[in-house]
Structures are given as C-alpha cells and as structure tokens.
Design a protein around this nucleic acid. Structure first.
Lengths: 352, 352
DNA sequence: TCCTTGCTTTGAATCGATTCAATATTGATC
DNA sequence: GATCAATATTGAATCGATTCAAAGCAAGGA
C-alpha cells in the first residue's frame, strides 16, 4: 500500500487532459463535460489516486477549516475535567454542524504549548483560560490568528473574550439557599491564586488574582449580606478543584463547632466530590447539608440526588466562540453571559 | 490585526538576504551567522512576520505531524463516553510526548463522516470501532493513509487492529466472583446486535454480530461452567450502555424470584450505573450485591466503593496505536492485549 | 459564410515555504 | 600573499494543488 506518489498532474496526463480540467473534475464537477469527467475519474481510480492532496489544496486556499482549542494543561485535561468536557462537547457540536475540524492543542509545559500552538494547523483558537490565561493569550497572539478567550481572568478589553456572569450567578446561588432558610454557610472555592490551598481570609479574596473565583466569592457575600449574614461568618476554603484538596476542605469545615448546613461550591466538580464525601460520612444530602454547584455539567443531572447548580449556557458560549473565530469577527470586546439556576435534589430547607 | 500578508520572501528581501538564509534562520538557526540571524529576526519582528507558514512548510515536508481519532459517533461521544475518554486521554498523553497533534474526526452521519475523514489534516487515523467498524475502515481506506482499528468487531486479518482479550478477561472476572462464593449471577451486556435491547437467549449470544460483547459473554459462561453454573442459569440483559436501558435491565433482573448476588457488567459505565441504581434501592454494594465492570476507566477508582473491574492497559494500547500510525508500521495483523483484574470495593463474598 | 453566444478546456501563474548543489567568504597557515 | 579548509550564503527547483484569462469549439441566427 505504498502511499500514493500519484499527483493530480499524473492523472491529468494519463487521462490526456490538462491539469486544470483534472482539478475541476474533483472540485467543480458540474463544469466539465460528463464524458470527460468520467474518463478522468476512471483514470484516477485505475492509477490509485487518493484524491486531491489536502496540503496542496490548502496551500492555495489558505484556509484549513479547523479550529484549535487550547489550554495550558496536560492534554488529558480535556477529557478529565467536567467543565472542559462539557464545553468541548458543545464546541464539537457546533463544529460538526458547520463542517469544521477540531484540534486539541495543549500542554502543561509552557514551552511545549508554545510549540504546539505555533504548529497547529488551524484557522483560529478557542482558549480555555482556566490557568495561566495571560500566557496563553500571549502565546496565541504571536500566531496572528483570530482567537477568543473563555473564562479569562483578565479585564483587558483588547482581548476578545467570553465569560459568564460570575458575580450575579454566585449571588443567585447563595440567595437560593438563604431563601430556603439556611444561615450557616461555607464556601469551597476554586483557585484564587497560585500555589495556595486552605482556608482564606477576607483580604485574600479581595486580592485574589483569579477573577473568576474572586467574583464568585464576592457574589456569595453580596447576596448573603442581604440576609444579614456577614462575610466574617462564612468560612472559605480554597481547593485546587480535585479530590484531595476538596476532602481536606470538608475535613476542615466540618470540624468547626457549628458546621455549615449549606455548601457553596464554586464548581460542580467540587460539589460532586463534596456530596460523595458527605455521603461517606453518613450526612445526607439535602436533609443534613445542602450543596449547590456552579457550571451545570451534565454529570450533575446523572447522580442521585441531582445537583442544584448555576448552569452555564454551554451551547450558546460554544456557538458564539466558534463563530467569532471562524468569521474573525471578534465580539464586542468582552462578552458576559448570564447563568441560570437549575434546582435539583441537592438543596432543600435545613432541618429544624 | 490584518492577517499577515508578510511572507518569508518579504522578510528576506527587507533584511537583504536570500530566501534560503531566511528560511535557515527559522529552521536551522545554528547554521547562520549570529549577526545575520539577529538581523533577520529583527527585521521579521519589525515587519510583523508571524513565522513560517505551516501550510507552506508542510506542503514541502509532506507531513502534518498530527493524527486523527475517528469514530462513527456524534463528536460529543469523545467527551461523554468513559471508555472513549480514557482511551483518548492515553492517546493524548502519547501524542504529547512525541509532539504530535491530535484531531478529532467524527460524525454520527456516515456521509458527513466520510467528508470529515477525507478532509482531516492528519498523517493517519486511529479508529474507534465501537459501532459500524467496517464502514469506518472502508471510509478510511480510501484516504490511503495508515490507520489502526481499535476494538474492531471483525476478524479480517488484512485490517491491522488492536483489541483486548475479551474472552479471557471476562472469564477472569466471572471466576473472581465465583471464587468469592457467588452462585447467582446476572449479566448486563453491551450491544450484541443493532436495534435490540432487553433479555437475550443463548442462541442470540452465539449469533451476536458484535464480537466484543459476544466474546465477553462466552468468557463469562466458560468460567462459570467450571463452577457448575450452566449458561441457562445466568440471565443476560442487553443494554445500550446508557442509563435508561441499564436501569430497565436492573428492574428486570431484580424482579426475578431469586435475584442475583453478583452482576457481571460488560462495561464500567454499566457497572457504575448499576451501583447507583442498587444504592438508590438501598441494596448495599458489595454486601448485598457484588458488581464487576470491564474497561478500567478512571471513574471506577473515584467512587465509593471503588469498582472492581478488568482493566484495559490504555497507556499501552495508545502507545502501540500511535506508533503504528506514525511509523506506518502496521503491527503483525491483529494484536490482542490482555486485561488485568483490579479488585476494589465493589466485590466481596455474598452474605451467608 | 460570418458572427455571436455559451459552454469546455487549456496553460501558466500562484500559494509559501524548504532544500541542496554551487558559490562566496572567512580565517589560519605557510 | 597564496592556498586550503571550514563555514555562510545564494538561487533556483520543488512540493501539489487551484485559479482565471484566454482560446477552442459547436450550434444558431443573420
């Protein structure tokens, strides 16, 4: 099965037509006389021609018809992290519909990622700025291709980005629980700053470098204060969105003299881990403890009890992001999209 | 940010060097005098040159340095199905290490997939033959690129493929439970044939078109018969590997007069769903019912109790597949890899 | 017969880089 | 200052297609 050394030119010559005609047979068949077309096609088959080489074609066209999704994370991140997964599922949906290819571009190592971004055959990038967003943006800039940043922790209006309304979303989440009657809250946070885990104070929140997490915290506070709950009363524990740190956080929070009846988790991932932990301690959800997540990943609907959460409109985000990249039509600077409360079984009024 | 109309030739001219030298500056910098190199680099920056265009480069090189993973499934399948996810995570690991790009090529619609395969910019394909494997192989053949089929339900030795030893793996799983003392078994099967769900008889198993499922069933039978348990005694329920059909299967199996104490699930996905269902019915795992899965997806290790399963060596499979595709070195026809029993908390001796 | 019109086909230019044999330059040595 | 080896640079060919202005051709009308 020697890889075809047969070129379009060979087919053209063998069929006794010009290269231009041969090209048309494959690209605009309607323009060439049926008789000729069939003859060329037949010749091509006889020669074992594999069809116009993509590289030759795209060199001419200048378009790859594919977009890259990039993150400063190990490649497996795309398949492990629920949020990334949900987002990618949505993106692939959109790509599918528009016949656009999807390439995964990622590396935990900055230098490697740089190389990967430089050598990805794509027309543009969607950046998952979970971590090191600015670096990612910077790396991508050099490539001089359209790109759009998702969940970027940076307010630079020169970078086109789409993110969700963390402030308002968090407020709605906290309000939901407060209205159910909860008064003792605790927050399990996603990363606020690099290289830190554990309980965090008020000042640290305000100075947190990751604005996604910061805004969620501020949203919680804002809503709770309307119910007379001061921010001092709400312990916040910073996790790295994985099992060990979330469990450490729960150990910490539930060793307090008055453990919380309501947990505000900054991601569904954290919330799901928390529910597992609580269950293993025979604390029932939602009877003993209510848990609310953030993101709206599909897994939240598949566990028992279902996870109450603030759902991101993944489909819409994906739609806009892909369009923006493909049309090189950066949206009006920073776009902020709302999230909606989805009430399932993991939240209820506290016990009497 | 007008996309660079600046070519290497422009940079070369502006810097007053030949195009060859300019090319060397980017590709073999050590060969050009430092002074010149810096000058060229500087000129490039001044002009806003985005670096050598990939299309031009690859046209020359003939290599894309990327592989495609294809499946006859909706694109989101790669992110939803635990098995696909685990496999892709492993593949991306390998790609990462060798600096190879990864493109996802998929569509539920055969015609669309055809087009996607035709236009994917890759050096070869890894085929996930969960469904419609032959079609997938056929489509890919036309592209005349190296490919390797994973989990192919077809014994055609002309197609290079890698699969796991389903027969032996299933036997080990059943033996494990039988040795613990179980005598009442039930099987929750993955698809045996198209368009069928529900309880299946012995003859149907033997005639099943999907050899993966068939061999697992045969493996179970084989091992159990050594313990004096005939195949007639073991109910088999065919699911489509999703929540509704698995739950229907459990409803069916546990409405029997003597419900099973051990469940043989043909995928971890099924096993995990089963554990959830049992728990919701307050049947404890493993005290009331033992459950064993198949695949060894990471999720199995993250739930409580951990899932006992037959683990596929994803890393090894990925490694071999990627190498085979990249080197165009098809392995010795069909490769079959063993699976290993991983005992966790979901299996134990039955209650007295 | 000549001209028009509409449809096919041709052939050369082009896309943006890499490659390599040939040539130019440099430095060291006698 | 001449020679030689080592190192740098050049320039043209090449990869495999697409594109489009121009040319060819057949049919119909004047």
């Amino acid at each position: 099965m020697a890889k075809g050394t047969i070129r379009l030119a060979d087919v053209a010559k063998a069929a006794g037509v010009s290269q231009g005609t041969a090209s048309n047979v494959f690209n605009r068949p309607e323009v060439v006389r049926e008789e000729v077309r069939e003859h060329v096609l037949e010749t091509a088959k006889r020669l074992g021609y594999a069809g116009p080489s993509l590289t030759g074609r795209l060199l001419r066209a200048g378009k790859v018809n594919a977009i890259g999704v990039a993150a400063l994370e190990p490649l497996a991140y795309f398949f492990d992290d629920p949020w990334a997964r949900a987002l990618l599922a949505a993106v692939s949906q959109v790509c599918d519909a528009s016949g656009t290819g999807l390439a995964l571009v990622s590396a935990k190592d900055r230098h490697k990622l740089d190389w990967n971004i430089k050598s990805a055959l794509v027309d543009g990038f969607i950046l998952l700025c979970v971590e090191g967003g600015e670096k990612l943006v910077q790396l991508t800039r050099e490539r001089q291709l359209p790109f759009i940043a998702l969940a970027l922790n940076d307010d630079d209006p020169a970078i086109s980005s789409i993110s969700v309304d963390n402030l308002e979303g968090a407020a709605v989440a906290a309000r939901h629980l407060a209205e159910l009657g909860h008064r003792r809250f605790a927050v399990l946070a996603t990363e606020l700053s690099d290289d830190h885990l554990g309980p965090v104070g008020i000042g640290e929140i305000e100075r947190a470098i990751y604005s996604t997490s910061r805004n969620r915290a501020l949203g919680y506070w804002h809503a709770l204060e309307a119910f007379g709950i001061s921010r001092q009363e709400v312990p916040i524990y910073e996790t790295s969105n994985d099992k060990p740190s979330v469990e450490a956080g729960l150990d910490f929070l539930f060793s307090a003299p008055e453990p919380p009846t309501a947990i505000l988790a900054m991601s569904d991932n954290i919330a799901l881990l928390a529910i597992n932990w609580l269950r293993a301690r025979s604390l029932s959800v939602p009877e003993d403890v209510s848990v609310i997540g953030f993101d709206g990943v599909p897994e939240g609907g598949m566990v028992e009890p279902g996870l109450t959460t603030m759902a991101q409109p993944f489909a819409e985000i994906a739609q806009r992001a892909v369009r923006a990249v493909l049309d090189d039509a950066m949206p009006a600077e920073r776009e902020v999209i709302g999230v909606t409360l989805v009430v399932r079984g993991s939240t209820a009024a506290p016990r009497q």
